[in-house]
Write a protein that binds this DNA or RNA. Structure first.
Length: 289
DNA sequence: CAAGAATCCTGCCAGC
DNA sequence: TGCTGGCAGGATTCTT
């Protein structure tokens, strides 16, 4: 489940291993994986072959690879739920869920997009003012140097809904998914069902800061494994088993107070929280009369 | 216009 | 043993 840290590890891998190399061929093995690309597989091939990726950029969970010659276009990569980018030897057997292959003229390692659940995909997009047009609505993420913390606090508090929903709203703050949302709420001792407008500015700031810290920590660990395992540019940060305090810990003791972590249904998925450190809101927002 | 629900997708696993 | 239903969830699309 790639969120910002995992996607950033992938970005670094692509930036290091797949840029400034002339593209020889593009094989789309599964059309659904390029469904967002205008013109489909043929258009992707036409845009990429003979060109090269200049670098790898990221905003939130989106990656894009600007082209060297077709300078106002980029290949956008979204990993979805299960997407991976692998740098593999051209001789390596196809992965079971290999969707797209990019070969280079130098015949060195090829770039492969592997995706079991096919929520992710690749597509060509126009870059406008430095950002692909389809991700212009995605807010800056907390690791972006131009991230505006105060403006984000205001945007969060303006929303009339539960704080966890807002954390997952990529148009307000990007990069956070279900796992890091639960982790930052646990760290800041906020129940995700609290209404965002009812939280003080400083409390919202604390949630943002904890989200930033937890994602930085995950990235630090993922980045380490990336250096030695560059072949596996796969978004596995190795962070999960060791360091999560809330997510996936149903019934296990809270590391702060010992109360058993509780799991609840939320937005068609699961939320994990400490029932003592993250008390339920006293008053539920009353429905409009 | 905004909030929230429905939707897509496949492997895995618990339960029968 | 083999089937079935539930579960995992990011982001778009649809509905209210």
């Amino acid at each position: 489940m790639p969120e910002l840290p995992e996607v950033e590890v992938v970005r670094r891998g692509i930036d290091r291993w797949a840029t400034e190399r002339s593209i020889a061929a593009v094989d789309v093995l599964y059309p659904r994986s390029v469904r967002r690309s205008p013109g489909g597989a043929g258009a992707i091939r036409a845009a990429l072959v003979g060109d090269a990726f200049r670098c790898a950029s990221r905003r939130g969970k989106y990656l894009w690879l600007p082209l060297s010659i077709g300078g106002d276009q980029a290949l956008v990569v979204h990993l979805g739920m299960s997407g991976q980018v692998l740098m593999q030897s051209v001789d390596a057997a196809d992965e079971k869920h290999l969707r797209v292959r990019v070969r280079f003229d130098d015949d060195q390692r090829e770039m492969r997009f592997v995706d079991q659940r096919t929520f992710g995909g690749l597509y060509i997009d126009d870059v406008i003012e430095g950002v692909p047009s389809t991700i212009a609505h995605i807010a800056r993420d907390p690791l972006d140097p131009q991230f505006d913390r105060d403006a984000t606090i205001r945007a969060i508090r303006r929303k009339d809904t539960e704080i966890k929903r807002v954390l997952l709203d990529q148009s307000v703050i990007s990069g956070i998914g279900n796992i890091y949302a639960d982790e930052s709420l646990w760290r800041s001792k906020v129940n995700g069902r609290r209404s965002s407008g009812s939280l003080s500015s400083s409390k919202v700031g604390e949630v943002i800061d904890q989200a930033t810290v937890v994602m930085r920590e995950a990235l630090a660990q993922g980045g380490t494994s990336f250096d030695s395992l560059y072949v596996n540019v796969n978004g596995e940060s190795g962070y999960f088993e060791r360091s999560l305090d809330a997510y996936g810990r149903e019934g296990e003791p809270c590391r702060r107070c010992g109360a058993p972590i509780r799991r609840e249904a939320f937005m068609n998925r699961s939320s994990f929280r400490c029932p003592r450190c993250q008390r339920s809101p006293r008053t539920r927002r009353s429905p409009r009369t």
